[in-house]
Simulated scan of single mutants.
Amino acid sequence: MAVLKLSLFSNNFPDFFIIDHDGLVDIAKIETEEDRRNATFQWTGPSLVNLGGTGMLVRAVAPPGFCLRIATFENFRIHSKFFTGITDPQVKAEVIAESTYFIEPAEIDPNQVSFRSVKFPNRFIRHRNFELFAEPVVTPSDLQSACFRIAPPLHPEDF
C-alpha cells in the first residue's frame, strides 16, 4: 500500500493548517520550515479517494511514530502521542483506539473531509479558538470547524 502523505487546512480559515506544536495540535499559519514539517502527516487508511475508511493521522517526518490522539484527560483536546514505542500492549491498543478516525465527506462541504472518532463516534476533530478537539458537531459553525481540505504535503521529503 502506498504511503498517503498530506497536509490539512481549515475550510473556514484557509491559511491555517493542522500543525503539531510540541504535543498540542492546533490550526495555525505556516511561518517556518519547522511548521511545514509539523503540518505534514501520513494517513494510514486505505484511501483518500474512496472516503469512509478508517485510519490514523501520523507525523510523516522525523521524529516518526507520533499520532493525533484524543486526550480524554484534557477535555478531548487533540494531542500528538508517541505510540510506536509503547511496549505495554494494552496501553498501545488504547492509544491506537483513541487515534483512529473515519474519514468522511464533510457535512457542510461534501467536497472536503471530516475525521470522526471510531472510539467516540459522536465526536469529530474540529477547531475551537484555533485549538483542535474531538467534539460533537451540530450547528453550522461546528460543522464548518470540522471541515478540512486535503493539500499536498507541505514537507514532502522523506526522513
Rank of each mutant, 00 (worst) to 15 (best):
M1R: 08
V3C: 09
V3N: 14
L6G: 00
N12S: 11
I18M: 05
H21G: 09
H21D: 14
H21L: 15
V25T: 03
D26P: 01
I30K: 14
E31D: 11
T32I: 11
F41E: 00
F41W: 02
W43T: 00
W43A: 00
G45Q: 08
G45C: 10
P46Q: 07
L48E: 12
L51F: 01
L51I: 09
G52A: 15
A62R: 15
A62H: 14
L68N: 03
T72S: 13
F73R: 11
N75Q: 15
F76D: 05
R77E: 13
R77A: 12
H79R: 02
S80V: 08
T84W: 10
P89D: 13
Q90C: 03
Q90E: 06
Q90S: 03
Q90P: 00
V91E: 13
V91H: 10
V91R: 10
V91S: 12
K92M: 04
K92R: 09
E94D: 14
V95P: 01
I96M: 00
F102Q: 01
D109T: 12
F115R: 00
R116C: 08
S117V: 05
S117K: 05
K119W: 02
N122R: 15
F124H: 10
R128G: 08
F130C: 13
E131P: 00
L132H: 02
L132M: 04
F133I: 04
A134R: 04
A134W: 02
P136L: 03
V138T: 08
V138D: 08
T139F: 08
P140Y: 14
D142E: 13
S145P: 01
A146V: 08
F148S: 02
R149M: 09
A151E: 15
P152L: 07
P152G: 04
P152H: 06
H155L: 05
D158P: 00
